[in-house]
Design a protein around this nucleic acid. Structure first.
Length: 377
DNA sequence: AAAGTGAACAACCGCCGGCAG
DNA sequence: TCTGCCGGCGGTTGTTCACTT
């Protein structure tokens, strides 16, 4: 263990990334894929460590990022996922296409935590603060809420999982059922997307490490989210395999240049050099062969396309892996949770819908990049 | 107008587990 | 089996900006 070797190297830049650095990184990855991250800075001509490049790409430059404020729907989903997964931000982010773990973590720490406390809910345990013994916070909340602690006796109670990481299941007594009052706010936007409804049961309740295996011996409390009191929480959940491949469409007037590096929707570059052009609209061309979506570590960039062709679509591999996870097993095995509806299964219909949504995501993302570079210039 | 404050966001740090030699 | 490298993750800190005093 210990620090990465790259961290010992001198003369490595730290801090905020400049547009020039961004450009170098984007150029390199779009052309070769990231391959081995530790080699990226050298190959891309950056004085950064590989980790820094990886972080910058994943959290900011990736084309499939959905920027902008979180919707109420997304916040609700984060709260529910956090109740089940805890601070596993990467797993939570996996359920929110276009969002990064860092982004979600920041939102949680800066905003959601506070909102939950204001409602008298302990953000760590998702229990009422009065139950967690933090009476100081409860009384503080009472002041702010005119003497009432919202959800004081009716909050959603998720079984204790504080020691779940150590494989210790601490049974919780059956909590009182949540009331409509509490969920009304949380599911305020729950019917925006009727075709891709995501219900709470579709989460990975089947995790043996937290004793949610549905074997009849768990103390799991599962509110009926499909009832009228807890309507299904709808969102645009994409299966992990639908890692958004760049098939981007942006309005023609959204093309922009970054130091001669043109982002456009028509494949033409400002300087006439096709090698300097990123065609965000071509269906499979540019990104399809350029990005490396989860390829084996440290594959030399020039070999990547060949390897992907040999091994088939890496996303298909991911999807097949995904099919074996308890997550989908829960969906597929209706016996485990009879309330689970098959709506989460990804049909071709909602696949195409999600593709349209994906285009919006790219649109927003590149508008953001354009805006960002506009700020610098 | 200047200083103070807090929210939001970006990036770093250190640890962990997987893997190859 | 051991060791070192690497990617990934979560916690934390730093920075910027808007708002308030």
């Amino acid at each position: 263990m210990g620090r990465h070797s790259c961290c010992y190297k001198q003369k490595l830049r730290k801090g905020l990334w400049s547009p020039e650095e961004d450009e170098k990184l984007v150029k390199h990855i779009t052309k070769y894929g990231h391959g081995c991250w530790s080699s990226v800075p050298k190959l891309a001509g950056l004085q950064r460590c590989g980790k820094s490049c990886r972080l910058r790409w994943i959290n900011y430059l990736r084309p499939d990022l959905k920027r902008g404020t979180f919707s109420q729907q997304e916040e609700n989903l984060i709260v529910e996922l956090h109740a089940v997964l805890g601070n596993r931000w990467s797993q939570i982010a996996a359920q929110l296409p276009g969002r990064t773990d860092n982004e979600i973590k920041n939102l949680w720490n800066s905003s959601i935590k506070k909102k939950l406390r204001q409602r008298g809910i302990d953000p760590n345990t998702h229990k009422p603060l009065s139950e967690t013994g933090n009476e100081e916070k409860v009384s503080e909340t009472r002041k702010n809420n005119g003497g009432k602690v919202s959800g004081e006796s009716s909050d959603l109670i998720i079984p204790e999982r504080e020691n779940s990481d150590r494989g210790i299941l601490i049974p919780s007594p059956p909590p009182p059922p949540p009331t409509h009052e509490f969920f009304l706010d949380r599911f305020v936007s729950s019917h925006e997307s009727p075709t891709t409804s995501f219900s709470f049961q579709q989460l990975n309740y089947n995790r043996p490490d937290i004793g949610l295996s549905g074997n009849g011996n768990t103390s799991l409390f599962l509110p009926d989210f499909n009832s009228t009191i807890f309507p299904p929480m709808s969102t645009t959940i994409l299966p992990p395999s639908t890692r958004i491949k760049p098939s981007i469409s942006i309005p023609s007037n959204n093309s922009f240049d970054v130091n001669g590096f043109r982002f456009s929707n028509n494949g033409s570059s400002s300087n006439g050099s096709s090698s300097n052009s990123i065609d965000l609209q071509s269906n499979n061309s540019f990104f399809e062969n350029s990005f490396s979506w989860g390829q084996p570590n440290c594959v030399k960039p020039e070999k990547e396309v060949e390897i992907q062709q040999m091994e088939g679509d890496p996303d298909e591999i991911k999807w097949s892996e995904y099919l074996q996870t308890p997550f989908l097993a829960t969906i597929q095995n209706q016996d485990l949770y009879s309330e689970t509806k098959p709506e989460a299964q990804f049909t071709s219909t909602n696949w195409h819908q999600s593709q349209n949504q994906t285009a919006d995501v790219y649109n927003k993302h590149f508008q953001r990049i354009a805006a960002t570079y506009g700020q610098y210039s």
